[in-house]
């Protein structure tokens, strides 16, 4: 209609080709049998495939562990970075964010090599190390952002009303930084479930994650089963987002890099 709405056309085309179409293809493949007809078999196969179910459980477990470790390490780090008395330089913030600028694959390969040189045997420990190393900045940054923007008068008001420094943190600072925390959890948990390269390199495929079996299926031309697994993963990610996304606006704001 108006000229201005025409500007959206290139983006629309982009969205159709790179987002909508692939999604439709995933759904189509997921419900297509070997013969090309419609079937639920691919999806139901997953629930009888002990191997896949096991991997799924391991994936969720690893993702939860990774998210928890990132939160426990990331929150204090973000708190210190955002506190003007403790951190007076912007450079320290950059140093924490810097790893995000380098390709995750490169970092993972380098980490794996480091473990080889140091003689560590690859396994769960090295996997978690690699995951935390990769995803920690994604936890720190949204929390740091929320804490930095937080009006210091809230903490002062709490102290003024009789709260000790510990109570100020527990009753005001922590609840007010929840948008940053949920945004950080989203940004760590979801990619961890679908990651495959990190587990491949850092455990020598000893531990398989959900992303790994999708990749294996696609690689061995089992497109239909792979698509079904992808669909299941999408649903899980969607559910997590819904559960954590009660405060959507803030989560997005907190996640802005």
């Amino acid at each position: 209609m108006s000229k201005r709405s025409n500007w959206a056309v290139p983006y629309l085309i982009f969205l159709v080709i790179f987002v909508a179409l692939p999604l439709i293809l995933i759904v189509v493949y997921a419900f297509q049998g070997q013969d090309g007809g419609f079937t639920f078999k691919n999806v139901t196969n997953f629930f009888t495939d002990g191997d896949a179910l096991n991997t799924f459980a391991v994936s969720i477990e690893v993702a939860i562990e990774n998210t928890l470790i990132c939160l426990l390490l990331g929150y204090p780090a973000a708190y210190i970075l955002a506190n003007k008395d403790l951190n007076k330089s912007a450079v320290t913030v950059i140093l924490f964010i810097l790893p995000m600028w380098i390709n995750a694959l490169m970092r993972t390969l380098a980490t794996a090599e480091l473990f080889n040189v140091l003689g560590f045997s690859l396994g769960k420990g090295t996997l978690l190390f690699g995951l935390v190393y990769d995803y920690l900045p994604f936890m720190i940054y949204p929390i740091y952002n929320v804490l930095l923007k937080m009006d210091t008068s809230y903490a002062e008001a709490a102290a003024d009303l009789g709260a000790t420094p510990v109570q100020v943190f527990g009753k005001v600072t922590l609840p007010l930084s929840m948008p940053g925390i949920s945004s950080g959890i989203l940004m760590v948990f979801m990619p961890t479930v679908s990651t495959f390269a990190i587990s491949e390199f850092l455990t020598n495929n000893k531990i398989k994650l959900f992303g790994t079996i999708i990749q294996e299926n696609i690689n061995s031309s089992m497109w239909n089963y792979g698509a079904a697994l992808s669909l299941i993963m999408l649903l899980i990610i969607g559910l997590t987002t819904l559960l954590l996304g009660g405060d959507k606006e803030n989560a997005v704001e907190g996640g802005t890099v």
């Binding site: 002062e156 008001a157 709490a158 102290a159 003024d160 009789g162 709260a163 005001v172 007010l176």
Partner: peptide, 17 residues
């Protein structure tokens, strides 16, 4: 420290939680 003092403040921008 402020939390032990017998006084309370009304802040400029209220600072309601």
């Amino acid at each position: 420290p402020p939390h032990e003092r017998p006084l309370n403040t009304v802040f400029q921008r209220y600072a309601l939680f």
